[in-house]
Design a protein around this nucleic acid. Structure first.
Lengths: 150, 150
DNA sequence: GCCAATTAGTTCTAACGCGAACAATAATAG
DNA sequence: CTATTATTGTTCGCGTTAGAACTAATTGGC
C-alpha cells in the first residue's frame, strides 16, 4: 500500500473533482455577485467595504481588512476610489495618530440603505435553490475545507 | 407571509453564513495553492495552463480558455509570460489562420512531469482531512451552487 | 527615559481578471 | 460570388490582488 503519486495516476486523485467543483462554484458565484453590483456602480471589493461600514461609526483600515479579507495594500486603493466617488471619507484619530477611521458619507449611507437589502435579497433568492439542510451541510463542509488549508 | 428584505433583517438571511464559508474556503484554498506553486516559480494561472497542456499535442487559446476558465484577454498575457520563461511556444495553424496552438517546450514538459504529480500530491494530502463521503457531498453541493449562479 | 520591536497605513511591483474595441480571417446567406 | 456575420487572438482601460519595502507613530523591555 503506497500513496506515491506519479504522472500516470495524478489525474485520478479523488480531490480533483472536488477542486473543479470548488473552482466552478466560486467562479459562478463571484461572477454573479460582480454583475449584480455593477447596478450600483460598485466593484465587489468596494461593495464589501461599504457593506462592512454600514451601521457602524466607522472602522479603521485594520478592522476593515480583518472583516473583508482585503489586504491593507489593496484597501488603500479601494478606499481611495470610494473617496473619489464621495461614498466614504478618512477621519484621523487623535488618540492613535497611526490609525485612520473610514466613515460612510451621507451619500454612502444612502447607497448602503438602498443596495445592501436588495443585493442580499437577490443572493438569498438564488441560494433558496438549496434546502436549509443543504445550506447547513455546505456551510459545515466549506468551513472544514477552509481549516484544512489555513 | 412575505419575503421582503429590509435594512433591518438583511443581516439575518440564512445565505450569509454560507457565503462567508464559501469566501473563506476559496480564500484559504487559492492562497495555499498559490504558495505551493511558488516553489516552481509559477502563478496559479500559469500552472493552470501548463497542467492543461501536459499530455496533449497542444491546444488553441480557445480550448485552453474553455478548460481553465481564463478569459482570452488574460490568456494572451499568461502565454506571453510562459513563452518568456521558455515553457511554451505558439505554433501557427495553416488550416485556420486565425487559430494559434500553444505547445509545451521540452523544458515545459519537464516542469509538468516534475510539478504536476507533486502538486496534486500535496493537495490530495490536505483533502484527505475529508472522508470520501464528505468529498462526494461537498462536490455535489458545490456543483449545485455553481448551477444556481450560472 | 530610551532603544528595540510592533503596528498602521502608504507606496511600489508584477500579474491577474474582465469587458470592450479591434484587426485578421473564415463561414454563411442570398 | 459577395456582403454580412461570426470567430480568433491581441490590445487597452480600469480595478483588484499579494507581497515587500517604506514611513510614521506607538509600545514594551530594561
Amino acid at each position: 500500500m503506497n500513496t506515491a503519486i506519479t504522472l500516470d495516476n495524478a489525474s485520478q486523485q479523488d480531490c480533483l473533482p472536488l477542486i473543479r467543483a470548488l473552482v466552478n462554484a466560486w467562479q459562478a458565484f463571484s461572477g454573479f455577485d460582480a454583475r449584480q453590483l455593477r447596478e450600483y456602480d460598485l466593484t465587489p471589493s468596494q461593495a464589501d467595504v461599504v457593506f462592512t461600514l454600514g451601521n457602524t461609526e466607522g472602522l479603521t483600515f485594520r478592522e476593515i481588512g480583518a472583516q473583508t479579507l482585503i489586504t491593507k495594500g489593496t484597501l488603500t486603493g479601494v478606499v481611495d476610489r470610494l473617496t473619489e466617488k464621495g461614498l466614504v471619507r478618512r477621519v484621523e484619530q487623535h488618540a492613535d495618530r497611526r490609525c485612520t477611521r473610514v466613515v460612510l458619507t451621507a451619500q454612502g449611507e444612502r447607497l448602503f440603505a438602498r443596495a445592501f437589502p436588495r443585493h442580499i435579497g437577490v443572493l438569498q433568492a438564488r441560494f433558496d435553490g438549496l434546502s436549509e439542510a443543504e445550506k447547513r451541510e455546505a456551510t459545515r463542509l466549506l468551513e472544514k475545507i477552509a481549516r484544512l488549508f489555513r
